[in-house]
Design a protein around this nucleic acid. Structure first.
Length: 129
RNA sequence: CGAAUCGACUGUUCUAUCGCGGAGUAAUCCGAGGAAAGUCCGGACAACGCAAAGCACCGCACCAUCUAACUGAUGGGCUUCUUAGGCCAAAAUCUUUGAAGACAGCUAGUGUCACAGAAAGCUAUACUUCUCUGACUUGUCAGAGUAAAGGUGAAAACGUGUGGUAAGAGCACACGAUCUUAUAGGGUAACCUUAAGAAUGGAUAAACCUUGCGGGUUGAAAUGCCAUGUAUAUUUUGAUCUCCUUUUGGAGGCAGAGUUGCUUGCUCUGUUGUUUGUUUAUUCAAACAGUCUUAAAGGGUAGGCAGAUUGAACUUGAUGGUAACGUCAAGUCUAGAUAAAUGAUAGGACUCGACAGAAUCCGGCUUAUAGGUCGAUUUUUUUA
RNA sequence: GGAACAGUAGCAAAGACGGUCUAUGCGCUGGACUGAAAAUCCAGAGAUACAGGUUCGAUACCUGUCUGUUCCA
């Protein structure tokens, strides 16, 4: 699998898994992003190890165009930075499930989003270890 | 030339790298809008066995055409307002410019019309007037006539003028309005022209309602199939009857369900056994189980495929029609996701980019919209 | 995606189903009481979501926007 891709297999899709994520998962925030994560172990068969999804609340961002825009930017930033976690997950044989929630009510620059995503991934790495 | 308003059309773009959804073995190709929005109308499509009748309910409402259909569009008619002109004492009628109209029926019935006013609706009423008659205290009273003038109100019992009269009044006449009737003429029709007549009988139907026409209900969270999984379990309401017959069948009744909110009709499901007591008798009764069914409280799944994108489709040309739109020919395949696909970085171009993101699909309407192009109207200044 | 309903002072919440503008409570402003304040009493201001239409007259009737709530596997 290429290093900088983000295909369907790496997205969290099941409704049950998302329900479990919110019930059992832990969370922290680094503005303008809030991260909810859950460590599933041992890793299920045919899993890539990392699963993520993005959410932008309809209450804070009322227009669909803007919601799509923010989701794409978060996804893009995650795609470019996620290589940090790859090794740790494969060595420990776990599946990490992530939910990113966009908190800000107005538009943030891509540099800002990129920075906070990188920071959150560093934090996650330290928590796994 | 500038400005304003209205209408129609359009709705940034190029290169490289990394990445996303779909098709394909692969190379590669395709990948949001004019409104994708609001869900306001109309269809297609699907399910409810058929979609039956009546009532209720809802919608529409000048006419014709277009259309799959429409609360849509096009053309026409009428009414109202408006521009200019003509006539004139003035209004209306007439010609003309532009705009608007939920534009069937208050001359079918019922209701309502606050305050003010004499009176707010049927052939009314008389506050201040006006006129006549009578009385006398000579400017008041009584009786009668009248509704023109005043006053009230959003609205006052056809409008304006003339005659008439004691004073007045459609009482009469002229012009006009409204309605009814006649069909004489024109028009597919709405309607227009014409003739005759009159109990001139406000406003309101976006008040109830009446008339005509239309509508079965529910919407892709519809619906069909496959897979996984649980509880063929628990409590509870009711039915389990009669006749015919060779039968596992038929007819009726009963219980329940469905069909549209109700009724009728129609359709479907169940109506089967065992045991005990009793009796001349599978005669009667009871209990239990089974089947169908009502309700309660629970348990499980929430994955995949179809529906789903080739269509009342789009482009170009020809052609019929005033137009909406139709017909013919040739060519094209143009998102199809399912926690849901279009982004980031770097570098350019220009007028420096508005409103805004498909979710079954079409035809409209409504609302949002920077800039640009074209057309129409109004108007300022300058020149001739 | 589809459907139903609502919007009245700063907040809550009535009546009025077309008649000239509306009760009440909490809150706000001013005054009285007090040495000062609280409580109490008196007085006052302030509203029919927005835009258009029907009507003599609309909070109510009709149409279109905006906002909010609820329901449907």
């Amino acid at each position: 699998m290429p290093l900088f891709s983000l295909s369907k297999a790496e997205k969290l899709k099941s409704r049950k898994a998302i329900d479990r994520l919110f019930q059992k998962g832990k969370s922290f925030s680094c503005y303008p992003i809030r991260v909810v994560y859950y460590i599933e172990k041992p890793k299920p068969q045919e899993s890539s190890g990392l699963k993520m999804t993005v959410s932008v609340p309809k209450k804070t961002v009322p227009k669909a165009v803007n919601r799509n825009q923010y989701k794409r930017q978060v996804r893009e930033a995650y795609r470019t930075n996620k290589a940090v976690l790859k090794e740790a997950i494969q060595s420990k044989n776990i599946e990490l499930q992530l939910m990113y929630i966009y908190l800000s009510k107005k538009e943030e620059s891509f540099q800002q989003i990129n920075k906070s995503i990188a920071k959150s991934l560093d934090l996650l790495l330290s928590k796994i270890n």
